[in-house]
Amino acid sequence: MRFHLISLFLLICIVLPAPAGLAQNPEQVAVTLHWQHQSQFAGYYMALAKGFYAQEGLDVTIMRGGPDVRVGEMLRSRKTEFASFMLSSALEERAAGLPMVQLAQVVNRSNFLLAAWKNPAEGVSIDDLKDLEGRRITVWLQDFRAPYLALFASKKIQPVILPQYYTLSLFLHRGVTACSVMRYNEYHTLIQSGIQDKDLEIFSLHDLGIRLPEDGIYCLDETWQQRPETCRKFVRASLKGWAYARDHEKETLDEVMKYVRKENLPTNRMHMSWMLREMLASIFPAKGDDWIFGRISRRTYEDASGMLIRYGGLESAPPFKEFIKDGVANND
């Protein structure tokens, strides 16, 4: 009976779209981020802080992710309507049976880098990817590992790969020759630890042809089916938040630092500043970039999913139409 009441309520919501900008009776939704609070999610913070969600009639709760949060589980258990995922993670969840769909592809540029000591040991120098042949390196696990495996396969090299978790300690202790880093995050952490560019050799996967779009907005297929307008409103407000972040970097940074301090996270403003800049560069196409803000093309999707199937242990990928929903449609 209770279920019917909810269904009825949902039905009313679909049939009678709530007037936009109406403050009373806002629709309560939650979004779960796939990592701890940082500039990576600045657009959502700004959408909330500047009232873009409220303008769409949404009352949004932002929930952090982290090593202790399983975002897929959050969706499955309906604790959150929306979630931020890396495309690769989303496809894994989907393959694992979570019926979720993508509403928007926020980050189109891949930030995966491979950072190597230029001189990892006496007499050894790393100038080329091929120099990593047979050397110990650390790479993230699961879906984060796929692009690196794709890279090594395409370059036909076989390094000894150790698991890489949350820190770069092993690399910093010079326990390995190279490690995987995100351009917007760990790369700058290295710099802030006093590692100089001249000591590092950086390989950009994006530049080496491994294109794996990253953060996107996802929800359960049923949510999309039942409340497409809510989905569109959320996406619209979130992308608006990103656009606001792009135009107000300082204000955005202040907002990010509020989240960071609240969680007592061991990071600093300069690092967040770096991250914000790199995120914006990955989200908004610059001259010469071949993507559209907030969307993924069929071809990119198919290339990426193909790569994940081949190298990331992904069992299968849903067809483009089935997985990629047009959450941005009314946004143009």
């Binding site: 630890s193 006093g194 061991p266 600093n268 300069m270």
Partner: peptide, 25 residues
């Protein structure tokens, strides 16, 4: 060993800032 301030008269620096991040700022 990473340059992070373990102790600094400005408490806000401790465990968040490194000497390099302060240089950067």
């Amino acid at each position: 060993q990473r340059g992070t301030y373990i102790a600094h008269p400005i408490k806000g620096y401790e465990m968040t800032e490194t000497i390099f991040s302060i240089a950067e700022s």
